[in-house]
């Protein structure tokens, strides 16, 4: 399947803060291209007369009252952190 012309992998990788090798770029270009190709196919469906919608099912106002439920203990919250210090997750310094 061919890569779509509007797929800019370097731009996407930059937005996702990913440094990709050429091999990875080729692999992801193929995968993302397949997805875009599928979307192109979906675009062929005749949707004239269908209102644009965010969801297919007409369900609204799904909510809960503002009542506090228990959260995670800090130990559990940080279990997946690659590095931690002072009960916080250590990340590379990126100042915006």
């Amino acid at each position: 399947m061919s890569t779509q012309p509007d797929l800019n992998l370097d731009y996407l990788a930059n937005l996702a803060r990913l440094a990709l090798t050429d091999a990875e770029k080729a692999e992801f270009a193929q995968q993302l291209g397949d997805i875009l190709h599928y979307v192109e196919k979906l675009k062929q469906v005749d949707v004239s007369g269908v209102e644009p919608m965010a969801h297919a099912s007409p369900v609204f106002n799904v909510w809960q009252p503002d009542v506090v439920a228990p959260g995670l203990p800090v130990e559990a919250a940080l279990r997946n952190a690659p590095a931690r210090r002072e009960d916080m997750i250590v990340v590379p310094k990126v100042v915006e």
Binding site: V67, V68, G71, L72, V74, A77, D87, I89
Partner: peptide, 15 residues
């Protein structure tokens, strides 16, 4: 529904 708040010990208001 985990509590919102200010000044709590780090990472204790998560779920």
């Amino acid at each position: 529904r985990v509590a919102a708040g200010y000044g709590q010990p780090e990472n204790t208001l998560t779920d």
